[in-house]
């Protein structure tokens, strides 16, 4: 299988928060942990745009590089996963991450951080696929079921796309083309006789 990627189309995202709710509800994420967030810039002004971000499942992920206990690993298809049984909750991955993806529940004594939780691309974790342990620690394993991640499946405007990188970028470039740029720009067919 090829590499999987997320893509959020900022010209389509309307800040409905559907992806966040779908993720939280679908995986029973505790309060205070956000695997996915939506932020909006220029709110209430012309040029308002929204963006939904979770773990980007980076190539050469910095979180994997800094982890002192090697709890984070990358699958063949690019999905970055954490083993919660190995993680010690030191927080180095959070400091290395450019996207603020690693999250820590503070459910231990004196508010100490528990094991890191982050987006799994709905691919579960290192526990046995479809096992009760996997469900409790990491949430659903929709990739193994052949489904897209919850957030992208829920997205009403289809702004958030998840899946095979080539397919995602193909859809996105078609969209950009249709919206108008280059020779497909508005009025070009009449003004410059170009189609």
């Amino acid at each position: 299988m090829a590499r999987v990627k997320f893509l959020c189309d900022v010209d389509r995202c309307i800040d409905c928060g559907g992806c966040v709710v779908a993720c939280k509800e679908g995986h029973h994420i505790p309060v205070g942990v956000n695997r996915r967030r939506v932020i909006t810039i220029n709110q209430g002004k012309p040029g308002e745009k929204s963006m939904s971000v979770s773990c980007m499942h980076c190539a050469d992920a910095p979180c994997i590089a800094v982890c002192p206990v090697d709890a984070i690993y990358q699958r063949e298809d690019g999905i970055v996963l954490v083993s919660k049984k190995t993680c010690i909750g030191c927080g180095y991955c959070f400091m290395a991450c450019p996207f603020g993806a690693p999250q820590f529940p503070s459910d231990k004594v004196f508010g100490a951080r528990g094991a890191m939780d982050k987006c799994t691309f709905c691919a579960g974790g290192p526990a046995d696929t479809f096992s009760e342990e996997e469900k409790n620690l990491y949430g659903q394993n929709r990739i193994a079921e052949g489904k897209v991640p919850l957030c992208a499946g829920m997205c009403a405007t289809k702004a958030l796309m998840a899946g095979d990188a080539d397919q995602v970028s193909k859809i996105y470039s078609e969209r950009v083309f249709k919206r108008g740029s280059g020779s497909n720009a508005w009025g070009w067919d009449k003004a410059y006789n170009k189609k």
Binding site: V10, I39, I41, G47, K49, A65, V66, C97
Partner: peptide
Amino acid sequence: PEPSTAAFKEFNAAFTGDWQQYGQTFT
């Protein structure tokens, strides 16, 4: 329409902040 690249710059500031400075140094 606003150019997307301008918006991307603002998103970068919101998410990655000074990552190049301290985030990269720490990593």
